[in-house]
Design a protein around this nucleic acid. Structure first.
Length: 545
DNA sequence: CAAACAATAT
DNA sequence: AATATTGTTT
């Protein structure tokens, strides 16, 4: 069965649980990559009919743009796939207009490059005031906003509010500090995602989906079929809960019953927890305090028509599991570089990342060199913040790693291109519609196995969570495999992080390299006038109306 | 076959 | 209400 996910022009994808090349409908709807970090298979524009023929490899580099009118128009991205590349950039819609905000120019620099690598249209700035100015001046010029959480004066959250509520744009928050409370605050205040620095290319490839999802959600809103009325209960006691499933099974057999089913409510409508709905839910939970939040009370607060207590209970169950896991990972001791002991006097071994954030940062750090061990070891947020204070921006660990990953990506891509030009005939490009699903699936898994151990850029220290999706840990026996995978990932990172950091020191002359590039990139976009704080308040007030 | 998710059972 | 299990979908 071919599943179709439609958004205006129509985006079509095959289904889920594949290895790397596909993203399922559900994953798209939730604006994140697929179960296994998949990428969209095919993406094209135009009406249904025009899409009848799948993309062919002949049309290359169709530049897709997003019109200034605000209407999203994603031109078909070239569907061809170069097998030698693991993360083919072709599948990202080009020209997505991203507003990138982070007060660390080094990070902006690296991140900007990464985003442009995805062929997005990036505008960068280092101050919230600039960002707001840009948003206001060029209304409808941006599709999505990415911002660091910890900007001066709660700027990240202000920006979230203004861009999200005021301008209706999806906002992605970023930070190296991913304390649960921070993530929660971001998400409950409307962030559509929270990316934990260091950020990998793969995490950027799919951010456009947030734009799509936002519009999708606007379209469907929340419509439950209203079959929870008196019919069932007034049936004279004949209808019992346990019968429902049987009835459904029988419905396919008897025509008469089928008719009834059709009329009364086509398949027992399921609640779709949209972003909005979920946010209402979270809001209610927060209001009650998490430990006092019970389905009934939540339901009362939410005031959503048609929503049942069972619906809420089910969601709450998932939500709790999600939170448990989130806090579990965040409190996990994190490995740090092996040379830390030399810098800060803490005796060898490993230490835990400090979770406290700004206030715990020591003042004397500003005297140390940018690449000093302590600057690296202090945790991304800490380093960034201390440099902010001293006036001269430094490179935090997260930025370093981002840069490294970006470099690695570039190298790999270069290698891939080379290989491609060398052996053109040997390329394994499948005819678009040629092979059967079965065959293609088999091929995919074979490829995945082959490359699995090579790709260092994919190593991630944390799992990315995006709402409203929770991993399904219900059903104990079914989840074992997944947890194993998670563990595998973490230990893989543990083994490699030291190597990464040592590589940084040796291979890259970071301060010089980035400073020059940052300065250059900066001049082009940083010209917006500085805007005083009251202007922000003004805008805030405006957006509240 | 896996994974996500919501309904349903206990 | 909390948790476990099942059904359905992708």
């Amino acid at each position: 069965m071919k599943v179709v996910f439609e958004f205006r022009e129509g985006i079509e994808t095959e289904h889920c649980w594949t290895n790397e090349e596909e993203t399922c409908k559900r994953c798209i709807a939730h604006g994140r990559s697929c179960c296994n970090n998949g990428v969209l298979v095919s993406l094209y524009e135009g009406s249904r009919e025009e899409n009848a023929s799948p993309p062919t490899s002949t049309r290359n580099s169709t530049s897709s743009t997003i019109e200034t009118s605000g209407k999203m128009s994603i031109t078909r991205v070239d569907g061809t796939m170069i097998p030698s590349m693991k993360h083919p950039p072709q599948f990202s819609p080009k020209g997505l207009r991203v507003l990138l905000v982070d007060d660390n120019p080094f990070f902006v620099d690296v991140m900007g490059r990464m985003l442009r690598e995805c062929e997005y249209n990036v505008t960068m700035c280092t101050r919230v005031s600039q960002a707001i100015y840009l948003l206001k001046k060029n209304r409808g010029t941006f599709d999505i906003v990415m911002s660091e959480v910890f900007l001066p004066e709660e700027g990240g959250f202000q920006l979230l509010e203004i861009a999200g509520l005021g301008f209706g744009l999806p906002v992605i928050l970023m930070s190296a500090m991913a304390e649960t409370s921070v993530v929660m605050r971001g998400v409950t205040h409307g962030a559509c995602d929270f990316l934990i620095k260091p950020i990998r290319m793969e995490e950027l490839r799919n951010i456009w989906q947030h734009v799509i999802r936002r519009r999708q959600d606007c379209k469907i809103s929340f419509n439950l079929l209203d079959d929870s009325g008196g019919d069932e209960s007034s049936d004279g006691g004949g209808t019992v809960d346990s019968k429902k499933r049987k009835d459904k099974a029988q419905a396919q057999e008897s025509d008469g019953r089928k008719m009834i089913e059709d009329i009364s409510g086509l398949k027992k409508a399921r609640v779709h927890w949209t972003v909005q709905l979920h946010q209402q839910f979270v809001k209610a939970v927060n209001q009650l305090q998490i430990d006092k939040a019970v389905p009934k009370k939540i339901l009362d607060i939410m005031k959503v028509q048609g929503l049942t207590r069972e619906n809420v209970a089910s969601h709450l169950q998932k939500y709790r599991l999600y939170l448990r896991r989130l806090s579990g990972i965040n409190s996990e001791p994190r490995p740090v570089a092996s040379f830390q002991a030399a810098g800060n006097g803490i005796a060898g071994g490993s230490m835990q990342i400090r979770q406290g954030g700004r206030k715990q940062i020591q003042e004397n750090e500003e005297h140390q060199s940018l690449l000093s061990p302590s600057a690296l070891n202090n945790g991304g947020a800490g380093a960034a913040i201390s440099s902010r204070r001293s006036g001269s921006p430094g490179i935090d660990k997260a930025t370093l790693i981002s840069l490294h990953q970006y470099r690695a990506y570039q190298q790999k891509q270069a290698a891939g291109d080379e290989a491609q030009t060398i052996s053109k005939g040997g390329l394994d490009i499948e005819p678009a519609g040629g092979l059967s699903r079965k065959t293609r699936k088999r091929k995919r898994s074979a490829a995945a196995v082959k490359t699995e151990h090579v790709d260092t850029t994919r190593i991630s220290t944390k799992t990315q969570y995006s709402f409203p999706s929770f991993a399904d840990s219900t059903g104990k026996s079914r989840v074992t495999a997944r947890e194993g995978k998670e563990q595998e990932k973490i230990s893989l990172w543990n083994d490699t992080e030291d190597l990464f950091l040592e590589k940084f020191a040796h291979e890259y002359d970071l301060p010089n390299l980035s400073a020059a590039a940052a300065a250059q990139d900066f001049m082009s976009t940083a010209s917006a006038p500085d805007i005083s704080d009251y202007f922000i308040d003004d805008l805030l007030a405006q957006s509240h109306k």
